[in-house]
Computed example of a mutant assay.
Amino acid sequence: MTFTKTTEQSSKYEHLEQMSVHELLTHINHEDQTVPLAVEKALPQIEALVNATVNALKEGGRLFYIGAGTSGRLGIVDASECPPTFGVPHELVNGIIAGGDQAIRRAVENAEDSTTQAWLDLKAAGITAGDVVVGIAASGTTPYVISGLEACHKNSIVTGSITCNAGSPLALVAQFPVEVVVGPEFVTGSSRMKAGTAQKLVLNMLSTATMIQLGRVKGNKMVDMQLSNAKLVDRGTRMIMDEIGVDYETANHLLLTHGSVRKAVENFKL
């Protein structure tokens, strides 16, 4: 099959600079509405990746995301949100970006073109054969990401990928590829738009479904969330009120005493 970068094809819209703000927003919104439908077509692939991830984490493994530019930043965002949302250790889900932490805010020249650095970065993070590495690249051609997964295979590490082009080199390397084909961007080649949105949706699914499977959600509540601000303390208090039928003051006391919704409820029921 011939590989074509649909993410690099010319926009369906011409003369963007001549459009009114209303026209720009309307057209961008129209394109954005196609993304969830593209994700839906990839659900079987996403399910396979989630199952592989859950199996690895249940056996003590960890999840790593590797990417460059926007893709790398999206992986870091997803990884960084898992501890406060689900109460898991910071080292359980990890985001690695080409160029290191400085690349989170500012692009590092040529970082994505390295064919050796990804594996060095993974080794520095303590990668093991029990872990899962998911390469994220809208184009599916980023050398940093591809070489990282190739090195993982040589070391018997499970791999997945998230791309937005069908039949990409990255998808061919990954054991559990996810391909969400969103087509040309509104601004030609600007894959932070539809492609970035697609990647974010897939990452949401991957981490959330995995954490639910690992028992980090009860009913539909984040019972292990970190109590890092007043809003979350109030949310946790109301969760306890709903679960065990006590007043706000009692629920709040239980929460602050035990440190989490789960522990507060479990100790109350003892």
Rank of each mutant, 00 (worst) to 15 (best):
E81R: 12
F268Q: 07
L172G: 12
T159P: 11
V178H: 04
S10L: 05
Q226N: 09
T116E: 07
A230L: 11
E17F: 10
N29C: 09
R262G: 14
T6N: 06
T257V: 02
G99Q: 01
A42G: 03
I157A: 01
V54L: 05
F3K: 04
P84L: 15
L57N: 13
N110F: 12
V134D: 13
S11N: 04
L92M: 09
I96F: 08
S11P: 01
V178R: 04
L256Y: 02
T208I: 15
E179D: 15
T115P: 00
A251I: 08
V35Q: 08
E59F: 11
I96C: 09
A174W: 00
G245T: 14
S260K: 04
T70S: 06
A171G: 11
T237Q: 06
E14A: 10
G189N: 13
L256T: 00
M19W: 05
L57H: 15
L203V: 10
A264Y: 02
I157L: 06
V39E: 07
N220F: 03
G75K: 07
E243S: 14
G183H: 06
N51M: 07
L201G: 12
V181N: 09
S139G: 09
S11I: 15
V77I: 12
G130P: 07
V77T: 06
P177H: 06
I97M: 00
P184E: 09
Q102H: 15
E59I: 09
I66L: 14
R106E: 08
V202D: 01
F268C: 06
I97D: 00
R238C: 04
K231M: 05
K5R: 08
N29L: 10
K123N: 14
V88H: 00
L120T: 14
L92R: 10
P89H: 06
A129S: 15
R62K: 07
V223G: 02
V158D: 09
E14P: 04
E179S: 11
G75D: 08
T4V: 15
E150V: 13
M222S: 00
V233R: 05
S114Q: 11
L43A: 13
N165Y: 02
M211Q: 15
